[in-house]
Nucleic acid binder design. Structure first.
Length: 590
RNA sequence: GCCGGCAUAGCUCAGUGGUAGAGCAGCUGUUUUGUAAACAGCAGGUCAUUGGUUCGAAUCCGAUUGCCGGCUCCA
């Protein structure tokens, strides 16, 4: 299947039909399961099953074993071989209700309750399912499939509902395409930042220290520091002022902001002397206090405070994931205090900076979401309807001016305002929120953040919270997967390995190493008794961009022999020539 | 937090009720080397923790912790 729009559509039909075949097989093998839903997803399909009745005496629901999956696959093959037709039928709601009542499909009945017209069912041999369709004509069209994993999933995604068993799978019109898909999944594992992080010795998360708390190694810290230095430089260029704030603040401050009630689960409170303090889950309050240290004139605005601020949030144990979701992380935070007439320029500036970051780090795939309110939802949101409408209008204006493809997502906004979220993808296609630009109608009110206007009267400021990377941990996690550990030279913890062929060449190798160091190049000398092949292998596995081979010939000619990552031996050069080439590449973030 | 799986040496992994294993890494020695792994020896483990079953547990059962895949959550 290609990438054309029709074919993508076809893929969904193909996968959805395979989900039906799977449901049929499961129902035949486990007649007491109740069906949930079985849609096609980004890459494949799933179907949810309630297994409570499979073992009616047990207090816990039956769960599918790997052996069950094999049995289900076997049964699916038989159904496919029979080449049953998928038959579509439109029926009345009342008929549908009595049909699914008879079948004891409680979940289908629940879905039916919310449907009014155009109710269709699909049958295939003796299997009937409530389904909008469309489907492929017959089961025989499925040529290759595999069931991949089984997982728990709440009915309708609500944790108050029963947990169903979800089986994931994928199918293709040929074995070759299926094999390619499976191979891609295998290859994606090689990009996993947790694996690469260990191999390249970039970071650790110690059980002894606590889950979700990252300890950067010397190599990881180099990467982090370089990114942070770059970040600071770019912010100063753009009129931001750097500030820095402590890790804790009095609980009362978080009560004033409203965070205390709302964010309680994720916030850690501690006794500090005789008073209660909160371990900061965000940096904004310190920025606001700094703003409020004096009366501000309209002439001073916009004020842009930026900080690489480390925050702590209690994330539930099941959601932690390497560097991508942690409990302590450094936000590349900034707060912009501005007037309404400055909003468009400020938002545009932030969006441009975020795009510049993405471009500099050479991210190709990302997604832009415009997160707005739940339609019709009234309570629980700060700000007036008018505020929200105007804010959305402004955000749209900015996005369209930048000609960005974006998706409007209702209900994704936070309670205090709408936002633009930029999502980065990991190796297996999971989206992680990186940069975010959020408008805040809440804090300016609660803290009475104002400026004195031309009219000599106080006006409420417009507050923008924003990150252009997201958080250092997550951003570097995405970077590792994006580069597969082969960082561009400006970010590489070790930029050059100097490898001697025999130990009597150490003098010249030292001379080369010192010269590189004097040009601020990060260099590692491999001067041990090992053979050159061993040293090359070591340096290659560490993904060092350049390896300089030092042998007798090089020493006599005062040359270095160069191996470039991904290219191999590129020949002998004068050291100065190499340094020029290298410093240019570093400068250009090539 | 929920569902399922997993946890053996620094790393990658073997070991299904009867004395804890390999490769790599480490240390010591030999080798002095020309573009992705030289050779030998040595050392290294309360089998995550904990309770139970058993004459006997890495192995079977329970609890806890952590990790993995989902779900939910995520200012």
């Amino acid at each position: 299947m290609g990438k054309g729009k029709n074919e993508v559509f076809g893929k969904k039909i193909y996968w959805h039909s395979t989900a039906h075949i799977m449901a049929q097989a499961v129902k035949e093998l486990f007649p007491d399961v109740k069906l949930g839903i079985g849609p096609a997803i980004e890459s494949g399909f799933y179907y949810d099953f309630d297994c409570q009745e499979v073992t009616p005496d047990s207090t816990t629901a039956y769960t599918f074993t790997p052996e069950d999956l094999e049995k289900i696959e076997k049964r699916m093959r038989e159904i496919i071989k029979k080449d049953y037709k998928f038959v579509r039928k439109e029926i009345k709601k009342s008929e549908a209700i009595s049909l699914f009542k008879k079948l004891k499909e409680d979940y289908k009945l629940e879905l039916l309750n919310e449907l009014n017209k155009g109710i269709t069912i699909y049958s295939c041999d003796n299997f009937i399912d409530l389904c909008e369709g469309p489907h492929i004509p017959s089961t025989g069209r499925i040529k290759a499939f595999k069931l991949l994993k089984v997982a728990g999933a709440y009915w309708r995604g609500n944790e108050k509902n029963p947990m169903l068993q979800r089986i994931y799978g994928v199918s293709y019109p040929s074995q070759r395409e299926l094999d390619e898909h499976l191979k891609k999944l295998e290859e994606a594992k090689e990009r996993d930042h947790r694996k690469i992080g260990k191999e390249l010795d970039l970071f650790n998360i110690f059980e002894e220290a606590g889950p979700g708390l990252v300890c950067w190694t010397p190599k990881g810290t180099i990467i982090k520091e370089i990114i942070e230095a770059f970040w600071k430089e770019e912010h100063l260029k753009r009129g931001y002022q750097l500030i820095s704030s402590p890790h804790i603040a009095k609980t009362d401050l978080w009560k004033t902001s409203g965070h205390y009630e709302y964010h309680y689960e994720g916030m850690a409170e501690l006794k500090f002397g005789n008073e209660n303090y909160v371990l900061k889950p965000m940096n904004c309050l310190f920025h606001i206090l700094t703003y409020k240290t004096r009366i501000r004139s309209y002439k001073e605005l916009p004020i842009r405070y930026a900080e690489l601020g480390t925050v702590y949030r209690y994330e539930r144990s099941g959601v932690l994931h390497g560097l991508m979701r942690v409990r302590g992380f450094t936000q590349d935070d900034a707060h912009i205090f501005c007037r309404e007439d400055q909003m468009v320029d400020e938002l545009t500036g932030v969006l441009e900076l975020a795009q510049y970051m993405i471009k500099t780090f050479k991210f190709t795939g990302y997604q832009v979401d415009l997160s707005v309110r739940e339609p019709g939802a009234r309570g629980g949101y700060a700000g007036s309807d008018e505020d929200w409408e105007k804010a959305e209008e402004t955000l749209v204006q900015v996005l369209e001016a930048k000609k960005l493809d974006y998706k409007r997502v209702e209900g994704e906004a936070v309670f205090y305002g709408p936002k633009i979220d930029i999502k980065l993808f990991d190796a297996i296609g999971r989206a992680w929120q990186g940069p975010t630009i959020q408008l805040d109608f809440n804090l300016p009110q609660r803290f009475n953040i104002t400026y004195i206007g031309k009219d000599n009267k106080p006006h409420q400021v417009f507050l923008i919270h924003r990150t252009v990377l997201g958080a250092m941990e997550r951003f570097i996690g995405c970077l590792i997967e994006h580069y597969k550990g082969a960082f561009p030279i400006w970010l590489s913890p070790v930029q050059v390995a100097v490898a001697t062929i025999s130990q009597d060449l150490e003098d010249y190798a030292n001379e080369v190493t010192e010269k590189l160091k004097s040009h601020d190049i990060r260099v590692q000398l491999l001067s041990g008794a090992e053979k050159i092949g061993f040293k090359i292998r070591e340096a290659s596995l560490m993904k060092i961009p350049y390896i300089l081979i030092i042998g007798k010939r090089e020493k006599i000619a005062k040359n270095v022999s160069i191996r470039e990552r991904g290219k191999g031996d590129i020949g002998s050069f004068k050291l100065d020539t190499f340094i020029n080439l290298l410093t240019k590449r570093i400068r250009n973030k090539d």
